[in-house]
């Protein structure tokens, strides 16, 4: 039986019921959300289940939604079933003031690098990560630059005259 978005959804609903919600299929890619405490359980099931077999973690990234109070940071996992060649997207949301999410490093070795990167840019605290330190930015950086409360432009720059750029 070929794996389709419908069968994946059916399997996950049987296993987790209402714990998985916000189902959608943007551009044909099955997307769903769960509680952040359940992220490892869901990933483990997706990994272990003999029909699902999502054994390749393509990407982890975060998204900052400042307007969603209490669930500002989304951590997004992209998973790939290499046998059936099908991809899914799995999201968990967390409060920006307490951005603790369980680390997937025990399950996927590739999560090590990507969780460090996500921590570096968004400050998501991956609980259980073996070495959660900055990976791309300078070590002495004291903020998380991709969060939207920080300006994108470098604040130390002195030669940029706003008048020249048509700004007030």
């Amino acid at each position: 039986m070929a794996l389709t978005n419908g069968t994946i959804r059916q399997q996950l609903t049987e296993k987790f019921g209402e714990e998985i919600y916000d189902w959608s299929e943007p551009y044909g890619m099955l997307t769903f959300t769960s509680h952040k405490d359940l992220n490892l359980k869901v990933l483990q099931h997706l990994f272990d289940d003999p029909t699902l077999q999502f054994r390749f973690l393509t990407d982890i990234c975060a998204v900052h939604y400042p307007e969603k109070k209490g669930a500002e940071l989304a951590v997004v996992y992209h998973l790939h079933n290499l046998v059936e060649n099908i991809r899914i997207r799995f999201k968990v949301f967390t409060d920006v003031n307490k951005p603790d999410v369980f680390s997937a490093t025990a399950l996927y070795a590739s999560a090590n690098w990507m969780e460090r990167e996500t921590y570096d840019f968004y400050g998501v605290n991956f609980v259980g990560h073996p070495n959660l330190v900055r990976i791309l930015n300078a070590d002495e950086m004291d903020y998380f630059p991709m969060r939207k409360e920080y300006p994108l432009e470098e604040q130390t720059r002195v030669d940029k005259d706003d008048e020249m750029f048509g700004r007030d």
Partner: peptide
């Protein structure tokens, strides 16, 4: 000289710093 178009958190804004 000045950071150029890379007015961003990751780029040094001119090596004269």
């Amino acid at each position: 000289s000045s950071g150029g178009i890379f007015d961003s958190y990751a780029v040094l804004q001119g090596i004269d710093q």
